[in-house]
Amino acid sequence: MTAYSSTVDTQLGPFTAVTTASGAVLASGWTARIDDLLPVIHKSLRPSAVAPRADLGDVTKAIVAYHEGDLTAIDAIEVHQTGGEFLLHAWDILRTVPAGKPTTYMDYAALSGRPAAIRAAAMACARNAAALFVPCHRITRTGGGMGGFRWGIEIKRQLLAHES
């Protein structure tokens, strides 16, 4: 399968997305390097080739609109990720956490149907390949600590400030 990639300059730095031919996001994040994204795509979805494009249509529009203040622009973008039943459900739940209303890992575990599985909920965030479109940055530690984020704590802090 051939996928497509594009990098957009944002206020937080370069943001790159990798999509299927139909426009579903396979991976994304605040980087200009495609090599930072390909390893996080599940092996069964990993493309055999990635062709650069200047624009990825609706995905590029959503990236720009989100960074310009339309916090719901990312909501309708299709994402393709795969994993076990819990991971798939947990990623779906992440997409329901509203901008400006971050939740804790503990509450996220409960929303995902497994209140005692706080570490599993954190792992779902860590394994999320489609940053921004599956907004794992909206999950924080109890007491307001940032927790981890693949693209750095400062990016996470700025995203949460942008959404508040």
Rank of each mutant, 00 (worst) to 15 (best):
T2V: 12
A3W: 03
Y4E: 01
Y4K: 03
S6H: 07
T7E: 00
T7N: 00
D9W: 08
D9N: 13
L12F: 12
G13V: 07
F15L: 01
T16M: 06
V18E: 01
V18N: 00
T19Y: 01
T19L: 06
T20L: 02
T20V: 01
A21Y: 05
S22R: 08
A24L: 05
A24C: 05
L26H: 00
S28M: 03
G29M: 07
G29Y: 02
W30C: 02
W30F: 14
W30K: 01
D35S: 12
D35K: 00
P39K: 07
P39F: 09
K43V: 01
K43Q: 05
S44I: 00
L45Y: 02
R46V: 07
S48H: 15
A51Y: 08
A54H: 10
G57A: 15
V59E: 06
T60P: 06
T60G: 00
Y66S: 06
H67C: 09
L71T: 13
D75W: 06
D75I: 01
V79K: 04
G83D: 04
G83V: 03
G83S: 09
G84S: 11
E85A: 15
L88E: 14
A90T: 10
A90P: 11
D92M: 12
I93A: 08
L94T: 01
R95T: 15
K101N: 13
T104A: 13
T104N: 14
Y105I: 09
Y108G: 10
Y108W: 11
L111M: 15
L111V: 08
S112D: 11
G113A: 13
P115S: 15
A116C: 10
R119G: 15
A120D: 15
A120G: 15
A124T: 11
A124L: 13
A124N: 11
A126F: 14
A126K: 12
A126G: 15
A129I: 02
L132S: 03
L132A: 00
F133H: 07
V134F: 02
C136P: 07
H137R: 10
T142W: 06
G143S: 10
M146V: 07
M146W: 05
G147M: 03
G147F: 02
R150Y: 10
G152L: 06
E154Y: 04
I155K: 06
Q158D: 04
S164P: 02
S164V: 00
